[in-house]
Simulated assay, not measured.
Amino acid sequence: MTGTIDARLSELGLSLPDAPTPAANYVPFVRSGSLVFVSGQISQDANGLIRGKLGADTDVEGGQAAAKTCALSLIAQLRKACDGDLDRVVRVVKLTAFVNSTPDFTDQPKVVNGCSDLLVAVFGDAGKHARSAVSAASLPLGVAVEIEGIFEVA
């Protein structure tokens, strides 16, 4: 299905990965009324997992790139939750982001901007959201970033 959001993705030169499958006993998303809760999406691209610890072996720009891949996976899950029609997205409501970082690293918000900026670029004003960006001592499989989201859909 091709709509306005798919066209915007194309204009931005972005393609969505296949919606990642859960690695344990949970579902990738839950719809409750008009809200879709998407499970945490870890930083990965076509080359595999994007690992690293911000403040040690990965810089802010690398973290932003990792967060961008989380955004693409969130959108892929959202597409699946909306039966392929991303134009049903009314609003990005809230993101909760975890950044694998050293105790002295304090730029988690800058890292998570990689995800936030992409969502605003794709969904426009409907992409503006509330969020939390917190440090984590480690993340599953050593990934750099994990982000979950809440979305309103029609």
Rank of each mutant, 00 (worst) to 15 (best):
I147C: 00
A66G: 13
F37N: 08
A137D: 14
L14V: 05
P140Y: 00
G84D: 11
L141K: 05
A144H: 02
D125H: 10
E61W: 02
L54H: 08
A65Y: 06
K68I: 01
A23H: 07
L139V: 00
C82L: 09
L86D: 11
F151C: 02
S15G: 11
R88F: 01
P28D: 14
L95S: 06
P22Y: 00
V134Q: 12
V60L: 09
L12A: 08
G84N: 08
A144G: 07
P109L: 06
I42R: 10
S73A: 15
A136R: 07
L119W: 09
D104H: 12
R51G: 12
A65I: 05
L12W: 03
S132D: 14
A133W: 07
A67E: 14
A56C: 02
A76H: 04
L16P: 08
N100P: 13
A65K: 13
G114M: 08
P20A: 01
K110S: 15
A56W: 06
A24D: 12
A81F: 04
S132G: 14
V145P: 08
A154D: 12
G84L: 08
D104K: 10
T21M: 03
D125A: 15
A137P: 07
L9F: 06
D6Y: 00
L74K: 05
A133M: 12
T58W: 03
F37I: 02
G114I: 05
P28G: 15
P17S: 07
G48M: 06
G127L: 03
L74F: 05
T96V: 11
L16T: 02
P17W: 00
R31Y: 01
A66K: 03
T58E: 14
P28R: 10
A144C: 11
I75E: 11
D117H: 13
V90P: 07
L74C: 13
N113K: 11
A130Q: 14
F29H: 06
S43E: 06
R79C: 06
D83Q: 12
I5Q: 00
A24Y: 01
R131H: 12
S138A: 08
I42T: 11
A23E: 13
R79V: 00
V122S: 15
T102N: 09
C115F: 03
S135D: 09
Q64M: 14
A97H: 04
P22A: 04
I150M: 03
I50Y: 00
C115K: 10
R79L: 01
T4I: 05
K80A: 14
Q108Y: 07
V36M: 04
S34M: 01
L14T: 00
L119K: 09
V89T: 13
A46M: 01
L141S: 11
D85M: 05
A66L: 04
L74A: 10
A154T: 05
D117R: 13
V145A: 07
L12G: 05
A126P: 02
I5M: 01
A7T: 10
P28Q: 10
G52L: 07
L12R: 02
V27H: 11
D104F: 04
T2I: 03
S43D: 03
D6P: 02
A67I: 07
T2D: 14
A121P: 13
A23Y: 00
G124Y: 06
G40N: 05
S34F: 00
A154G: 10
T4L: 07
G149I: 08
